[in-house]
């Protein structure tokens, strides 16, 4: 727990206090992040008016569009007015689409969340199983095989996995759809056809990471003296690992899972591009290219908030699994 998150009051240590403190810190983090993003994107060459007009950017047309977008104001003023809007829940209006940012995000966020949730539902159980199994039989043939497999998976870039998967399953075999346009999904079979490949590709990326973290955390616990005690007591290896070591390893594992899952929200641009999946990562990349600052800021806020939320949940899980953390 960070220092700032510890309130000095009497209910220090209670779950509610922890959550409240973390939310407060989270809000401050969001504001800082938004300022940093605003500053960095201002450094990009060109602005929304030039990006929109492209080859048609005559000086007068650019000036007219800048006035329309409010880009003729000073950057600090623009940032403050955006921040004031955010405080009232208004994410602003996109320059290029001329639609509320909230509406644009609302159209895509559910799709990103669905993809992330599906991937998490598939990858987390697999990763935990791999991690625990290789920790239990560390040094053995199984461990080495799993190690090799996970390392190879993480070493292969996702665009390669995705492209090969499309070539094999969509182009050659015709089993799956090359597009994951989630528009016409009515049956579980259609869902499977559309989601199998993106989920598979993303699993490749994150399973290895989570499995290796799990393995390390469990091994760390397995070498502790209380585990030695359990072994001497005569507990079976499975029981030692699952009942004695695992609860103590849940903290770091939950954090590893949270980090991987937060990647699924904003870091899946390549997968969205290859499968033409209309998610929020593409929205943000497009917005950066178009210099559409309100969208960039809105997406950044969502990614940042999602990340903070996941880490908070991971910490809460760690505390729930290990009562000692509550009384430290």
């Amino acid at each position: 727990m960070p220092e700032a998150a510890r309130p000095p009051s009497a209910f220090r240590g209670s779950l509610a206090a922890i959550v409240l403190a973390r939310v407060a810190v989270g809000l401050v983090t969001l504001v800082v992040v938004s300022a940093i993003i605003f500053a960095i994107t201002s450094l990009l060459p060109g602005d929304a008016a030039q990006a929109v007009l492209g080859q048609a950017a005559t000086p007068e047309a650019v000036a007219a569009l800048r006035a329309k977008y409010g880009l003729d104001q000073h950057a600090v003023l623009r940032y403050l007015s955006w921040l004031a809007g955010l405080a009232t829940g208004d994410l602003g209006r996109s320059y290029t689409a001329d639609l509320p940012v909230a509406e644009l995000i609302a159209g895509r966020l559910p799709k990103s969340l669905l993809l992330a949730a599906t991937t998490a539902a598939v990858s987390v159980p697999i990763a935990l199983t791999i991690g625990i199994a290789s920790a239990m039989w560390r040094g053995g043939l199984l461990d080495r095989a799993l190690n090799l497999a996970t390392l190879s998976m993480v070493a292969v870039p996702e665009f390669l996995v995705a492209t090969i998967a499309v070539l094999v399953f969509a182009v050659k075999l015709g089993w799956l759809s090359a597009l994951s346009n989630a528009q016409d999904i009515a049956s579980p079979v259609q869902f499977l056809r559309a989601y199998a490949m993106p989920v598979l590709t993303l699993c490749f990326v994150i399973i290895a990471q989570m499995a290796r973290m799990t393995r390390a955390a469990v091994i760390d616990q397995l070498s502790a003296s209380y585990v030695e005690m359990a072994v001497l007591k005569g507990a079976a290896p499975t029981r030692v690992a699952l009942r004695h070591a695992l609860p103590n390893a849940i903290g770091p594992i939950a954090n590893a899972v949270a980090l991987s899952v937060s990647y699924l929200l904003g870091g899946v641009v390549i997968v969205e591009a290859i499968f033409s999946y209309p998610g929020i990562a593409t929205l943000m990349v497009d917005a950066v290219t178009n210099r559409d600052m309100p969208i960039v800021q809105g997406c950044a806020m969502i990614f940042c908030a999602g990340y903070l939320l996941l880490v908070l949940v991971a910490d809460l899980i760690a505390i729930a699994a290990n009562p000692r953390l509550r009384h430290r």
Binding site: T163, V166, L167, A170, V171, G174, S177, A178, L179, N181, A273, I274, F275, S276
Partner: peptide
Amino acid sequence: LIGIPDEPARVNALLAGDV
């Protein structure tokens, strides 16, 4: 009408019969 900005993905979508 959809857009697939990635050219290889566009060709794959064609050859897979999706477009």
